[in-house]
Design a protein around this nucleic acid. Structure first.
Length: 346
DNA sequence: AACTCGGGGCC
DNA sequence: GGCCCAGAGTT
């Protein structure tokens, strides 16, 4: 098929030199694919390098504790990926004797491995004919074929997967999968692609119909909800503070943060005092940021205040301020720690 | 089928 | 501000 041949030819000339392209080792391929989920190459690359340096094989990763894995993942987001990565490493090391599943169907059973990642590993490592469908593939196919079915609808997922399966080069599935994703990332970009140098321009339906700007079509998601966070940044006479581990189901599961009081709106000091209700050990309370820090997540906007609370004593669960950098924290907390000079306070 | 889960980069 | 990124899991 001409489309497929043009893509693989384009790829042979334009491919970027990326570290996970120089190996067929399923551990490295798997690790890179988990890191790159919903993450641009530029952002994921340093994390990939850090993980292979810290955990050269699946056994080192399996023998790490989860907190160390989360710490190395800190700042990358979607932390369930790190927890599933660690769980799957233990499964492979201890239940499968260190040997990765070698086909799409069995790869799909691994935690954190869905349709895309199973197809990627199966094709890159074992040359299985399994077509990948990621954000790049949706964009390239919807534009070239002029498909208006929303890519995040059930129907759309079916249509694009079937088309990708039909187009894949059965003689060289790995190269085809790499080629179409690279083409989407480098040439057929989301905004303002340079169509004048596109090798597929003659038969591209979106270009012909002036629809590059509207394809692919995606069903809009809801607007993020506003939440109001009040963090309690304790500073004791003994140079200690408190970090707590987030439990339960929500964001940042198993990461650490300062004790949190949530309010229904942004509050001032008098309202905070009512909410916090300090005891006799509290010597002084001040507000770190007069203007709320708005931390934007996909589905939540976190309007955040950091309250500095000087105390004479803290409970058993406190830790030395000099130690807090060892805990995995959300970037919101990390940014505060960098900006707030604890040394001036103690 | 809709919702949840991060953080960075681009326009 | 809105959209996107080598998506997966849960409800």
């Amino acid at each position: 098929m001409q489309f497929t041949k043009t893509l693989t030819n384009w790829y042979s000339v334009n491919k970027r030199d990326l570290p996970w392209r120089n190996t067929n080792n399923p551990y490295y391929i798997w690790l890179s694919e988990i890191i790159l989920q919903q993450t641009q190459v530029k952002q994921g690359l340093p994390y990939y390098e850090a993980f292979i340096a810290q955990y050269p094989t699946v056994y080192e990763l399996a023998n790490a504790n989860e907190e160390a894995v989360l710490k190395l993942w800190q700042g990358l987001g979607y932390y369930s990926r790190a927890r599933n990565l660690h769980a799957t490493a233990k499964h492979i090391a201890f239940n499968l004797e260190g040997v990765f599943p070698d086909n799409y169907k069995d790869l799909l059973l691994l935690k954190g491995v869905g349709d895309y990642t199973a197809s990627a590993i199966a094709s890159f490592c074992y040359n299985e004919v399994a077509a990948v469908v990621d954000g790049n593939v949706y964009r390239v196919l919807s534009r070239f074929y002029g498909i208006h079915t929303p890519i995040n609808s059930t129907e759309g997922k079916k249509v694009f997967k079937a088309l990708a399966d039909d187009l894949i080069d059965t003689k060289n599935p790995a190269d085809y999968n790499q080629a179409i994703m690279e083409f989407g990332a480098v040439q057929c970009k989301p905004s303002s692609p340079d169509c004048s140098v596109c090798p597929l321009i003659e038969n591209c339906m979106a270009y012909r119909n002036n629809e590059i700007g509207i394809l692919p079509i995606k069903i809009k998601n809801n607007k993020p909800k506003n939440k109001y966070f009040n963090y309690l940044v304790y500073v004791s006479d003994t140079d200690e503070t408190i970090l707590e581990q987030r439990r339960g189901k929500g964001i940042w599961q198993n990461l650490y943060q300062f004790p949190l009081l949530e309010s229904k709106k942004s509050i001032e000091e008098s309202e905070f005092m009512e909410l916090f209700n300090p005891d006799e050990t509290v010597a002084e309370i001040s507000l770190f940021n007069e203007v709320d820090i708005i931390h934007k997540l996909s589905h939540q906007h976190l309007h955040t205040k950091f309250w500095i609370i000087k105390t004479t004593s803290l409970p058993e669960s406190s830790m030395l301020i000099s130690e807090i950098e060892n805990y995995a924290v959300p970037i919101l907390i990390k940014n505060f720690m960098d900006a707030f000079n604890f040394q001036n306070e103690i």
